[in-house]
Simulated scan of single mutants.
Amino acid sequence: MNTPTMALAVLGVTGLALVLGVWGLHAWSGGRADRAALVDRLADVPAAERHAVPFAGLDRRVRRTDWGRRLAARLAATGTDLTPGQFTAAALGVVGGAWLVADIVLAPFFGPIAALLAAWAVSSFLGWRRRVRTERFIAQLPELARVLANATQAGLALRTAVGMAAEELEAPAGEELRKVADAMTLGHSIEDAMAELQERLPSRELVVLVTTLVLSSRAGGSVVESLRNLTVTLEERKETRREIRTQMSQVTVTAYAVPVIGIGSLLLLDRIMPGSLGAMTGSGAGRIAVLVALGLYVVGFALIRRMSRIDV
């Protein structure tokens, strides 16, 4: 084989190898995208979250675990747009940042303590957002009962009345009722759809409303009269809860002021006597004293919060 023929053969083989390489890379990337989409569908990831979502890889890994599925349910109950992966990344950043700041500003001994407090604060944030959403939903319950009563009195079925209320009411009631209406459209019973709503937003007022709707749909009776009586009751409970919250606001502020004063005292002490916190936590007796003091602050915070919590 002469030189020109060999050169052409080499160029042909090289071109074929490049074409096959590009085709293989395209097939590999397409298969990877299909696999990621399949994992997202199996994990019940909303369609809007499947593209261009930060920490998408971490989100898929987190959703595969039991803890990730529970976290996804808690995030859904709070109404936030964060995915489990985004929340996990943010939580790790907050915990690591708190450790680093406490290590630099106070003393290395306070780094792990600050990290534990930050982890508790991140977990409490979800509970706080869920309580806020539940309170907003409870505040809309009288209007919800009124809309359902008017729709039922007009001759509409309960499923249609729920869909109408979902369109008329604002968030969070509108969003939650839309989920209930979608569940009933897919064939779920009113009992199952309302039970899922109770799991997302647990409250006594919602239990009363759900019980009224379920019993009325199961046993019949005057649904309109029951809903109108329930509307009056919910309005009274709403005013009672508002009065109690106003009267207990000072106690709530005191619960948060106590640990803030303690942390402020540490910062003030280190400002007046630089290096005093490092010297204090340099011995075993000093560490024990700090831990005991922090424990007392935690107990005081928990007791004050428990005293200010009144169930109506």
Rank of each mutant, 00 (worst) to 15 (best):
R35E: 13
A37R: 14
V10Q: 05
P142M: 09
R159K: 15
D182T: 10
P84I: 02
L82F: 06
D44S: 14
T231P: 02
V224K: 11
G96H: 03
G262Q: 03
S283Y: 09
L156Y: 10
A149C: 08
V207M: 01
T80V: 08
L296H: 05
R64Y: 05
G278T: 01
M307E: 07
R306T: 11
A115K: 00
M248Q: 09
L16A: 14
F110H: 04
R287G: 02
A90L: 09
S226E: 10
D182M: 08
G12P: 03
S308D: 06
L148I: 10
A151C: 12
L42R: 13
N2S: 15
K238Y: 10
V13H: 07
A77L: 00
F137Q: 06
V224R: 12
V13K: 09
L8E: 13
A102G: 01
W28G: 14
T240A: 11
A115H: 01
R245W: 02
M307R: 15
T65R: 07
P142V: 12
G57E: 04
S217R: 05
P202C: 13
I261H: 06
L75K: 05
A279Y: 02
L201I: 09
A72I: 00
A151G: 11
R237N: 11
V19W: 13
P46G: 06
A255R: 05
L38D: 09
L303S: 07
R306C: 02
T252E: 03
Q250S: 15
E191I: 05
L177S: 04
M273N: 11
F87Q: 01
G174F: 10
A166Q: 04
F137P: 06
